[in-house]
Design a protein around this nucleic acid. Structure first.
Lengths: 119, 119
DNA sequence: TCATATAGGGATAAATTTATCCTCTATTGT
DNA sequence: ACAATAGAGGATAAATTTATCCCTATATGA
C-alpha cells in the first residue's frame, strides 16, 4: 500500500469528509451499495470503467473508514457481501445532496466541463 | 496546463459535481470567498498550506467552471477580487451539508483516518 | 479436460495532481 | 538606486492515484 509522505490537513469538517470521500469511485460505491448491490461482481458491473483491482482497494478504504462492512461467506466459489454501516448510512443524505445539485445543473455543468477539455 | 489523456465520466449528477469540486483546495476556496475573503493574498493567508501557485490554478478552474468571477482592477500594485457567481452560490448549501456532516462526526472521523496513517 | 464464475492481490507503468523554485511588472516609499 | 507590494505564470520535481498485466484458488457444467 502506498504510504503518504505529506500529512493531511484535518482541521475542519470539510477536511475530514474529504479524506474519506476522495477517491475516484468511492461515492459511487457507497451509492450502489446503498441501492442494494452488495457483491463485488455486481459493483463491478455497475461501474465498468473501473478495474476490479481499484474497486477492491477503494472498498478496503471505505471499510477501514468504517463506512461499509464486508461479510465473507466461507463457500466456494467465494461469496462476499458489502453493506453500509450506520455511519455510512448517515452519509447518504449528503451524497444525495451532491447528486441532486449535479442533476439540477446537468446541462450547464456538462457545458463548462467540456469547455476545458479539447475533443 | 496539463491535458487529460483519459476522458472523464459525465454520466450522472455525481460525476458532474465531482468534476468541478475535485481539487485539494477548491471547496475551501469557495467557502472562504463566500465568507467575503476576496483577494488572492487574503485567500492565501486563510489557506497557508497551499502555495500561491496552486491556489491560482484552482481559482482559474473555478472561474472556467463559472463558479467564481474574477474582477481585475487596473491599478498598481495590482488588485484582484473574486466573488461567487449565482451558480457558485447555489453550491454553498451543498458544501455546508458536507462540512456539517464532517463536524458532527469529527472525533470518529479523526480516529478512523489516523488509523490508516502511521506516525 | 477445459472454460467459467468468484474473489483476491503483487508488481509495475501511466496518468494526474501538487509542490518548489525562479522570474517578471510597475509604482510607492526610503 | 533599491526594497516592498500584489499578482501572474513557466519549468520542473515530487507525490499520489489509477490503470494494466498477470497469477492464485476451487467447484460446477459442458
Amino acid at each position: 500500500m502506498y504510504e503518504r509522505k505529506i500529512t493531511p490537513n484535518l482541521n475542519c469538517g470539510l477536511d475530514l469528509i474529504g479524506e474519506v470521500l476522495y477517491g475516484k469511485w468511492k461515492i459511487r460505491l457507497l451509492w450502489f451499495i446503498e441501492q442494494g448491490h452488495k457483491r463485488p461482481s455486481e459493483l463491478q458491473r455497475k461501474i465498468p470503467d473501473a478495474s476490479r483491482r481499484v474497486l477492491n482497494i477503494q472498498l478496503k478504504e471505505l471499510e477501514d473508514h468504517e463506512l461499509v462492512m464486508k461479510k465473507i461467506y466461507p463457500v466456494v466459489p467465494p461469496k462476499v457481501e458489502y453493506s453500509l454501516t450506520d455511519f455510512g448510512k448517515s452519509l447518504i443524505p449528503v451524497i444525495s445532496a451532491l447528486g441532486r445539485w449535479g442533476d439540477q445543473h446537468e446541462d450547464r455543468l456538462r457545458r463548462v466541463i467540456l469547455k476545458r477539455i479539447p475533443r
